[in-house]
């Protein structure tokens, strides 16, 4: 028995090591490139021969107006945050109605949301490009926030419905018997209990908006609203003869580290959110 346990531990240790290796190699690799001095970026070594922060410095060089990175970073953060706030607000209303109220059209909304989750974004890019230019939304924040809302709402609704359903009905009834109005019951009992779900949905929506590339390169034309993924694709080197590899790696690390920290702290919630309502047989 003793022996068996030791062997089990050995097998699991190897399995876990493999998983960690699989997950972390690209991140470590980017970190390694970003820390190489620009002259050694192309040396192909997995571990830098010497360390330097030059790649990071070049990112922020020229300050707000000339740096190729600062404005896109601000755009990314603001656009993702605004999308998150609006999406979560709208999705909370809808999810509450779906989880708690009886009305015709409920199944239609859920089915429609699901259909949208599977919708190919590229199919809307052309018409949006044309419409946005006509409406003056091309290359603006709202021009990106609106499509992000559309495509993140289904996810947010599904996650929130799953969480709202978890809250026992009788708590709301108990609050009513305790003398609460329906709104008080919602605000003092349902909302605090749904907070973890709301937070989870918010993380997922944020990651979605943060990750988008298709809309960002199609519906923007300048740093006015271009987000980091699209900006990375347009990075240029110091001169037209040098590849921007080092700066891309540094920029990638800057936008990745916060996400990793986030994931570290909230992995339980993210897992719950990603799997909520997805599998019910």
């Amino acid at each position: 028995m003793e022996r068996r346990d030791t062997r089990d531990y050995a097998v699991w240790s190897i399995a876990i090591a493999l998983v960690l290796l699989f997950a972390l190699i690209p991140v470590v690799w980017l970190l390694s490139i970003s820390l190489k001095p620009p002259s050694e970026v192309t040396d192909g070594r997995f571990i830098p021969a010497s360390f330097s922060l030059d790649n990071y410095k070049s990112l922020f060089e020229g300050g707000f107006s000339n740096s190729p990175f600062i404005k896109p970073l601000i755009n990314s953060i603001l656009i993702a945050l605004i999308t998150t706030v609006i999406a979560i607000t709208l999705a909370s209303f809808t999810a509450y109605a779906i989880a708690r109220l009886e009305f015709p059209g409920k199944r239609l909304i859920l089915a429609g949301a699901l259909a949208i989750a599977m919708f190919p974004p590229i199919s809307t890019v052309g018409p949006l490009f044309d419409m946005w230019r006509a409406l003056g939304l091309y290359d603006t924040y709202p021009g990106l926030i609106i499509p992000y809302l559309t495509f993140s709402l289904p996810l947010a609704i599904y996650v929130l419905v799953a969480f709202f359903r978890e809250i026992p009905w009788d708590l709301e009834e108990a609050a009513q018997v305790d003398g609460a109005t329906p709104f008080q019951a919602f605000r003092k009992v349902i909302l605090p209990l749904a907070a973890p779900g709301v937070f989870t949905a918010a993380i997922l929506v944020f990651i979605f908006a943060w990750n988008d590339f298709v809309f960002s390169i199609s519906l923007t034309s300048s740093d006015a609203s271009r987000t980091v993924p699209a900006a990375l694709a347009f990075f240029t080197g110091e001169s037209s003869f040098t590849e921007p590899t080092g700066s891309i790696a540094a920029a990638a690390i800057v936008v990745t580290i916060p996400i990793i920290v986030f994931v570290l702290f909230f992995q339980r919630r993210i897992v719950a959110g990603l799997t909520a309502g997805a599998v019910k047989g």
Binding site: V19, W210, L232, T256, R268
Partner: peptide, 14 residues
């Protein structure tokens, strides 16, 4: 679980 979520959280472009 945390390790597995890292690829999910990273921007596809990155």
């Amino acid at each position: 679980r945390t390790a597995v979520l890292i690829p999910y959280g990273i921007i596809t472009v990155v």
